[in-house]
Amino acid sequence: MGELVHAEAGSVGRVVYGRVRPNEDLVTAIETICDEAGVLNGFIRGSLGSLTDACVDCGDGSETVVYGPAVEVVGLAGEVRTAAGGKPVAVLHGMIAGPDGRIGGGRFMRGKNLVCVTFELAIEEWVVSETPENAAEPRP
C-alpha cells in the first residue's frame, strides 16, 4: 500500500523556452538554461529534438546506448531542482529511438547525450510556497 512521503505547496511561475545547440550535453544544457533564467525548480513540459548518440540508465544498474546519428527523443519528462550549492540539477527520463529501429528508455546520463542538430524545450517554473508544511522534513 502506498504512503505519502512529502507534499509540497507551490505555484506555477514563468515558462522558459530554450534551445540546446549541436554537441552540447542535453542534461547539463538544461541546467545551464535554468541557471541563466533564475529557475530554481521546474518541470520539462515539452521538447523536440534529436541526439547524436543516446545513453540512458535503465534503473537496474544497466545502461542502454543507442547509436545515431540522429537518435530521436520520442518522449521526455524531467524535473529540475536546486542543489545545496545553489545550482540547478536536472533529472530527465525518456524514450529514445535510433535510426536502426533500436529503442530504449530510462534516465538520461549526464555527459553522454550530445544534441545532434538542435533540441527545443519548454520548462515550467515551480515556485515553492513559504508555508509551514514545506518547512517540515519529509519522512524517510
Rank of each mutant, 00 (worst) to 15 (best):
L40F: 06
G86D: 05
I96A: 10
V117T: 14
C55Q: 14
A83R: 10
E79T: 15
F43R: 15
E72L: 09
V65G: 09
A97P: 00
T82E: 04
G106R: 04
P69T: 11
G105C: 04
R81S: 12
I103K: 12
E79W: 02
A84S: 13
D53N: 15
Y67I: 10
D60A: 13
V56S: 08
S62Q: 13
G101H: 05
L92Y: 12
L76I: 11
A54Y: 02
G42V: 07
V91M: 07
M109D: 06
G59Q: 10
I44Q: 08
G46D: 13
T82P: 04
V65P: 09
T32W: 01
E36Q: 14
S50Q: 09
G105S: 12
V80F: 05
A70M: 06
G59L: 01
G94T: 10
G49A: 04
R107H: 03
C58Q: 14
L51Y: 11
P99H: 05
V71N: 05
R45H: 05
D57R: 12
V71R: 03
C116P: 00
E36S: 14
A90Y: 05
A83V: 03
F108K: 08
T52L: 09
G98V: 04
C34N: 08
N113P: 12
G104M: 00
G46C: 01
A77Y: 05
D100N: 12
C34S: 11
V91R: 15
G106K: 06
D35S: 13
F43Q: 12
G85A: 13
E63A: 13
K112R: 15
V89N: 08
L40G: 15
